[in-house]
Amino acid sequence: MVLTCPVAMGRTTRLDGSSELSRRAVLRAGALLALGGAAVPLTSCGLLDRDEQPPQPDALTPLIDEALRLAAGLRAAATAHPELTDRLVPLAESHEAHAAELTRVVGGPTATPSGSAVSPSSAPSADRSATLTALRQSERAGRDAATRACATAPAERAALLGSVAAARATHLEALR
């Protein structure tokens, strides 16, 4: 209703300047409508939803996700190649210990990994040597990520991240 009237005026008085005014009127009306439209949901949800806003993800969150992914990859490989269980499971347990400790440092349940079920990035190969090669590749990438995180971390996180980086390097060695 509001929109149709000025448009009609603009058509009829194209040259006398009043069309400019009417266009501003259209814009003002539109702006008021937009505000009015937005005002309803803003007032209705503002106070209630503020507490549920997720906080900025912590810089350590990707490392926690990666630790759980590495653990899942090792466990899947141990299932596919039971003769490797004694070698692979202690490494998986280390990654899980890292995830738990990093989560504790980040603080609170909001820091838990984004995915509810963590699965390895790919299924283990039926070939044992190919499986170990893939695991080494993942550990190497993990070591490099933890090394980078340690380099720039605040002092209170540096020692933990250093241990995570060093542990991933020892995994690489243990998978040779």
């Binding site: 890292h98 020692a159 243990a174």
Partner: peptide
Amino acid sequence: TRWRRSAGITPLTVPFPGR
């Protein structure tokens, strides 16, 4: 870890080296 392998110590790794 390499010395543990030579010594036959398992597991070859610890969760938090240096801690």
